[in-house]
């Protein structure tokens, strides 16, 4: 390689495709959307740019219920995913043996089918005349009029199901990297199973916990498919509102403002969560990686 080229800023040249992509497909649309969110008008008469900041406050006051519900559902789904995903990732990482890859594949395989089809299948499975409902009614867990579809439970479970792999895979990746000798050292130093898990395994898997919870929570909070297919308007989330404002009502400024509010809130949540749970653990294992 010629020194001249190197000096001329090869790093910038290499950066260009990525940076260009980011500008063209992220920054620019975001700018358009910001522009859009500050317009005033009606779907019928059209919208004009007007520094109409009130779009934001109006959006919040009008749809605060859906906002709260989104975070509630996403939080619940993240929690359930964690409770299901951690033991699963743990078993695959430490007890998987030669079945490891097969088990991981089993986690991913359902996702070869598209999101929409999978969720539609759940609609069928949970439907009022489906086998699950009638079985639960027979054994008396569900009342005569009881149903599964169109409830909060069905929406939350749908979200959990759809984002579970995003929880399991990062957890697995961080658990799998833990040196088993560290666990032996824990037992050797008079640690019982619980001690070793709480003091060694869990702290060392924190990067996976942080990554997994974020990867589950962020898309879950913006999701609208599950609420649409497995719920009713009473379960509608902010994603449903944005979708209908854009595509059905044609109220672009409100939809854009809602998107920005969602983005801002998520960013705040991510930063706080990463600070509380992440930094120390992330730095700790990052160093371990560097040493190895």
């Amino acid at each position: 390689m010629r020194a001249g080229l190197k000096k001329a800023g090869l790093p910038y040249l290499l950066l260009f495709p990525g940076l260009g992509w980011l500008l063209l497909f992220f920054a620019l649309p975001l700018g358009f959307m910001l522009f859009e969110s500050l317009k005033a008008g009606t779907p019928d008469s059209g919208f004009l740019f007007d520094w109409s900041v009130s779009n934001y406050s109006d959006a919040v006051s009008q749809f605060d219920e859906q906002f709260m519900r989104s975070f509630e559902f996403a939080g619940l789904a993240t929690l359930i995913s964690f409770v299901i995903g951690y033991p699963l990732a743990y078993v695959i990482a430490f007890r998987g043996g030669r079945w490891r890859n097969a088990l991981l594949l089993a986690v991913i395989v359902p996702f070869f089918v598209t999101y929409l089809i999978r969720t539609l299948s759940w609609e069928t499975i949970l439907s009022d005349d489906g086998a699950v409902v009638s079985t639960l009614q027979t054994v008396g867990i569900l009342g005569e009029e009881g149903r599964l579809l169109d409830t909060t439970a069905s929406v939350v479970l749908g979200i959990t199901y759809n984002f579970l792999p995003f929880m399991i895979l990062p957890l697995y990746a961080s658990l799998e990297r833990i040196d088993p000798r560290l666990l032996e050292a824990g037992y050797d130093l008079y640690g019982r199973r619980r001690d070793v898990f709480m003091r060694v395994t869990l702290p060392l898997s924190m990067p996976g916990v942080v990554a997994g919870t974020l990867l589950t929570f962020i898309p879950a909070a913006g999701d609208f498919i599950n609420a649409e297919l497995l719920g009713t308007p009473r379960q509608s989330m902010i994603g449903n509102v944005i979708q209908s404002r854009y595509l059905e009502v044609g109220d672009y400024p409100t939809a854009a403002a809602l998107s920005f509010i969602l983005m801002g809130t998520m960013l705040a949540v991510v930063l706080v969560w990463a600070r509380v749970a992440g930094t120390e653990a992330l730095l700790g294992t990052e160093g371990e990686e560097r040493r190895a």
Partner: peptide
């Protein structure tokens, strides 16, 4: 019994003193 491991197996997330205190604390 206590073991000194081949690659030391020090807890990477704990400081030196917390590593040393691990057994006593347990």
């Amino acid at each position: 019994t206590n073991t000194v491991f081949q690659s030391y197996a020090l807890f990477p997330h704990l400081s030196v003193e917390r590593n040393v205190a691990f057994g006593l604390e347990r």
